[in-house]
Nucleic acid binder design. Sequence first.
DNA 1: CGTACAATTAACCATTTAGTTAATATATGT
DNA 2: ACATATATTAACTAAATGGTTAATTGTACG
Lengths: 205, 205
Amino acid sequence: MSEKEKQAEEKILDAANKVFIEKGFYGARMQEIADKAGINKAMLHYYYRSKDKLFERVFEQAVKSLFVKIGPIPAMDIPFDDKIRNFVSNYIEMLAKYPQIPMFILHEINTNPDKIEKIFRKNLEMIPKNILIQFREEVEKGNYKDISAEQFIINILGLSIFPFLSRPLLQKIFDISDDGFDKLLEERKTLIPEIIFNGLKINKE
Amino acid sequence: MSEKEKQAEEKILDAANKVFIEKGFYGARMQEIADKAGINKAMLHYYYRSKDKLFERVFEQAVKSLFVKIGPIPAMDIPFDDKIRNFVSNYIEMLAKYPQIPMFILHEINTNPDKIEKIFRKNLEMIPKNILIQFREEVEKGNYKDISAEQFIINILGLSIFPFLSRPLLQKIFDISDDGFDKLLEERKTLIPEIIFNGLKINKE
DNA sequence: CGTACAATTAACCATTTAGTTAATATATGT
DNA sequence: ACATATATTAACTAAATGGTTAATTGTACG
């Protein structure tokens, strides 16, 4: 029972993940989740009280998966630019595994900004504080152009995440095959750090 | 009549724009559109046959507004890097005016990729072909690092558009006020071209 | 005027959807 | 084996939603 319970509860969560992430909250149908999980619709309400509650679970999990990679970076004992290289590479790797998550999260936040509060109140203290400090230290040392740490992070995230948000459109516009796009993503693991660092390097003359 | 007709038809389209763009196709309610337009729900179907048809109009218009700024750039008679500066500045300006449009379009394409075809079949031949060629020419001249033109465009678009896709999240994480974020966007008009060009400049030694 | 046509509305309809219920099956502990 | 709790289902309900209809109002124009 306990074994089977886990099976059912988990099958539901897996199915909910797929459907919510693919269709968004409003586009998702409880019936479709039940079908995909291979169980009766009433079971959804038996384990998770309502669509909202089930969604919350999925959303929270998605947010965690998006931030968990960022956490350990600042504490690593390697040079700052290696940290960035490390992060970008790992992050693109992770996004390639769950390519729909950024769109899912950002869209849900956009259509219902209250959801931010709910998640971030209980969840992990926001992570990148240390990265911000470390970048500013590098700037103080004179290693990089004096831009705000926020701009710095936005650049990295934008360059890394945007291709996943716009993949179908980009493939269409540029007529890129699925394999071609995967290769392009792979290239970006090294391209993005180069741009970030060369773009901010101070030209000592 | 013809005067009033335009008023009603236009009021509907305005309302539909707001509601669809804010909530997405599945989240949008015909009743809400009617209310916002200040007319009876039956009028929506009188002028636009169905929710799908009305949505199509809104979507098409949104796509156009997103691409129209890119069109004239390649033909301008200014140096290549000025073209980029010009574009980024104008594009961020435009996005600031319609900040929800990128999320709207990208999300709709994501949940229903068929929509791409429908739009781009009739609409403008995709624009950036000339920009691609021009960038490759610059590379051939030895002015820039040898990356593909696609990567080049993705960098520019990512750096420009991403802040609008993730604004609520970024403001929350970094604790940035509305004014603060607007200022940050303004800064990016010059910051992005710097990064793009310094990031790709060949270090002649 | 009055007739023909367009615009507008209230009321209605059919379907879909999240959620419930009450009955049945399945496992668990003793 | 039996009683108890848990898991599962089919059938149902109430509300919401996109869409329709038929009747009413407004407008142009001979």
